[in-house]
Nucleic acid binder design. Structure first.
Length: 479
RNA sequence: CGGGGUGUAGCGCAGGUGGUAGCGUGCUUGGUUCGGGACCAAGAGGCCGUGGGUUCGAGUCCCACCACUCCGACCA
């Protein structure tokens, strides 16, 4: 039996219609439900549990590096939002407003935060006075609202959950260091926990967050060859500090503006997980963030000793720190197999009279479909090993897809032709001119994903205009 | 925001020319099953997306709106 064999009905084939496949998986795996408001999606327990696991990992990493959680208000007065010109211009088209309190019209409109830079800045204006107050390393877990025109589960909600970090530093170097360190944190989350390989690097000026000096991003490739920005980390310089009049007295007794950063990842990551790992049988969750890592399916439950043995295994695995669950509902085994494949549970453990007699059990891997006969003795260790193996192989499989779908291009025609043959990332040299970036987009529909830290010289000249070029840029289609 | 598609039971769908709704599956109960979506029997479940209109009468015809979905443009 192979893992790629389609065993679940009702899910559109991934290669036939990727978008439809995605929608089917999201619904059938019980991740979301739609609400009465467009783009405001109900995260069902299974999806929320994934988010909680991601939160747990990231929050731990943030705290390890000295960050503190805070909570800012949901509502921002219009006058405060207006303070930074580029920020408001960037977000104005998608801001939702509160205009009434009860029946009374408010004297000033309040915006529902699309992001909280302005609130943090106002707070820093009030609380940062001396070099001794710095740095401030704040983070908040919350939801934000952006009135998107087109919405898709996880990828683009009008309200979505995220974390936004906002830090203030005495020096530019320290702030830049923070920005890059956070990018590394995101890369570690993606690769070590989500099994999603990333490309790290700064964005082009055109793709930079409104108001930021530099935006760094971790870019991932989905199974269909499109890119997904998994996380961003912005360096603000002192742009916001000046706009919000944040000043501190330095050691040399002079007034200075501090330097700031902000960074975030959202529930969009879950969309990434689905699109990187899923297959025609449904979801495949990376074991380290999966709510359930292993599901026990007892066979012939009514027969002597089966249920007791299954319960015993569950207890042993839980004690060993493995997130195991057991399905003792009266559904048929075949039904359960299909159900947990659709939900992407990494390992399935079958235990029936036959195994019992041999002091063995059957373990089936979700990612490969491989069936293993494993001794009950020492089971915990073997399962821990298998979970690691599944993680490693998911990551490796995603890396192969990234490599197979990445191509080099030295001219626009070549770039377009290669993209039409196979959707993916183009590596190309770029002169740094925004006009060329625009032209590339118009002629190939691709946009600059990032300027990777890991550079390679593919050619001497810009893929678009032919003038000398220093930087290699990744171009791609994106979600 | 532009272009297409779809809204009828939890889900998937059928309901020519108008006459107050049906199939599959799921659900409930009982029984037999159980190593790849088991079977039998008896039940329950619908303001036909919303609001207007035409008509003696609208799931069906007309108008408007809303939601979901796909493809573009914009964004995390």
């Amino acid at each position: 039996m192979t893992g790629s064999q389609k065993r679940v009905e009702q899910i559109t084939s991934r290669d036939k219609d990727f978008a439809q496949w995605y929608t089917d998986v999201v619904k059938k795996a019980g991740l979301i439900d739609y609400s009465g408001v467009k783009g405001c999606v109900i995260l069902r327990p299974y999806a929320y549990a994934v988010w909680e696991n991601i939160q747990k990992v990231l929050d731990g990493m943030f705290k390890q590096t000295g960050h503190e959680n805070v909570y800012m208000p949901l509502l921002i007065p219009e006058s405060l939002l207006q303070k930074e010109k580029e920020l408001i211009e960037g977000f104005a088209p998608e801001v939702a407003w509160v205009t009434h309190g009860g029946a009374e019209e408010l004297s000033e409109r309040l915006c529902i935060r699309p992001t909280s830079e302005t609130l943090f800045c106002e707070h820093y204006h009030n609380t940062v006075h001396s070099w001794r107050d710095l740095p401030k390393l704040y983070n908040q877990w919350c939801s934000v609202v952006r009135w998107e025109k087109t919405t898709r589960p996880f990828l683009r909600h009008r309200e979505f959950l995220w974390q936004e970090g906002h830090t203030v530093h005495a020096t530019a170097d320290e702030a830049i260091e923070e920005t890059v360190a956070i990018l590394e944190t995101y890369a570690e989350l993606c690769e070590k926990y989500l099994a999603m390989p990333v490309i790290k690097g700064p964005k082009t000026k055109n793709e930079t967050f409104p108001g930021a000096a530099v935006t760094y991003a971790v870019e991932c490739m989905m199974h269909d060859g499109r890119g997904l920005q998994a996380g961003t980390s912005h360096y603000f310089g002192d742009i916001f500090a000046k706009a919000f009049d944040i000043e501190f007295t330095d050691k040399d007794n002079t007034q200075k503006h501090p330097f700031q950063t902000s960074w975030g990842v959202s529930t969009r990551l879950i969309g990434g997980i689905i699109m990187v790992h899923g297959d025609d049988s449904g979801l495949i969750l990376p074991p380290r963030i999966a709510p359930t890592q292993l599901v026990i399916v007892p066979i012939s439950m009514h027969k002597e000793g089966v249920l007791d043995a299954a319960k015993d295994i569950k207890t042993r695995l839980l004690t060993a720190g493995i997130r195991a669950s057991m399905d003792m509902s009266d559904q048929s085994p075949g039904w359960k197999f299909a159900e947990y494949e659709m939900k992407g549970v990494a390992l399935r453990l079958e235990i029936g009279p036959r195994d019992l007699a041999e002091k063995m059990c059957v373990i089936v891997r979700r990612d490969t479909g491989e069936k293993l006969h494993v001794a009950l003795n020492g089971l915990e260790k073997e399962i821990a090993r298998l979970l690691d193996m599944v993680h490693d192989e998911l990551l490796e499989r995603a890396r192969k897809n990234l490599a197979a779908r990445t191509f080099d291009a030295t001219g626009l025609d070549e770039m377009k032709a290669k993209l039409e043959k196979k959707i993916g990332f183009a590596r190309a040299m770029w002169c740094g001119n925004a006009g060329c970036e625009q032209e590339i987009n118009e002629k190939t529909s691709m946009r600059a994903r990032c300027v990777p830290f890991e550079q390679e010289k593919i050619a001497d000249t810009c893929v678009c205009c032919g003038s000398p070029a220093e930087k290699m840029v990744i171009f791609g289609l994106q979600y």
